Simulated scan of single mutants.
Amino acid sequence: MKKLLIVFVILCNIMAVNAQKTKKENPMKLNAGIITTKLAESKTFYTGILGFGVTFENEFYLLLHTPGHTAEISFLLPGHPSQQPLFHKAFKGEGMYLTLEVDDVDTLYREIKKKGIEIAIELRDEPWGDRHFAITDPNGVGIDLVKYQTP
């Protein structure tokens, strides 16, 4: 009986380790998507202004990644026959924002101003610790560029 108990305990430990390993091997990844006719404008904006790279592109879909490959954003033409009806209606340019955390928000602010991009919210410090500014992408999405710091 003692041997059976030891085997049971060992099997339980193995199962627990495998469960933790599975969690680490199957992480969830978020890819925000915008349904828009402005694929070319979005590509130019995100690659030229924010330094994103192109992960994949075809005539109806564009997938971009952040400079460090830590996140992605996609753009899809509305009403495309390859897509289900849920993904047909175009984004109307309101009620969405993205936050991009950066190491040096001051330098990025100066670079974006030099490129002539309209600043929607000027560089500022918030009482809760954010130092940030905001711009708007070609689809009307607000982009908050932020450096988190202790208040």
Rank of each mutant, 00 (worst) to 15 (best):
K2Y: 10
K2R: 15
K3E: 11
K3I: 12
L5P: 00
I6V: 15
I6L: 14
V7S: 15
F8S: 15
F8T: 15
I10S: 08
L11H: 06
L11M: 11
L11T: 12
L11R: 06
N13P: 02
N13F: 12
N13R: 08
M15P: 04
A19M: 13
Q20S: 12
K21E: 13
K23C: 10
K24E: 14
K24Y: 09
E25D: 13
E25W: 04
P27G: 07
M28A: 14
M28G: 13
N31C: 12
A32E: 08
A32G: 12
G33C: 09
I34V: 15
K43I: 01
T44G: 03
G53Q: 03
G53A: 05
T55S: 11
E57W: 01
N58T: 07
E59L: 06
L62G: 03
L64G: 00
P67S: 02
P67C: 00
S74Y: 04
S74M: 08
L77S: 10
P78T: 10
H80K: 06
Q83M: 13
A90I: 12
A90G: 10
K92C: 10
G93D: 06
G93H: 06
L98H: 02
V102I: 09
D106F: 06
D106A: 12
L108F: 04
L108H: 04
K113G: 02
K115C: 02
G116K: 03
I117G: 02
I117L: 04
I119T: 10
A120I: 15
A120K: 15
A120H: 15
I121H: 15
L123F: 04
L123G: 05
D125A: 08
D125L: 05
E126H: 06
W128L: 07
F133M: 05
A134T: 15
I135K: 00
T136P: 02
P138H: 01
P138W: 01
N139V: 06
G140H: 06
L145Y: 03
K147F: 05
Y148D: 09
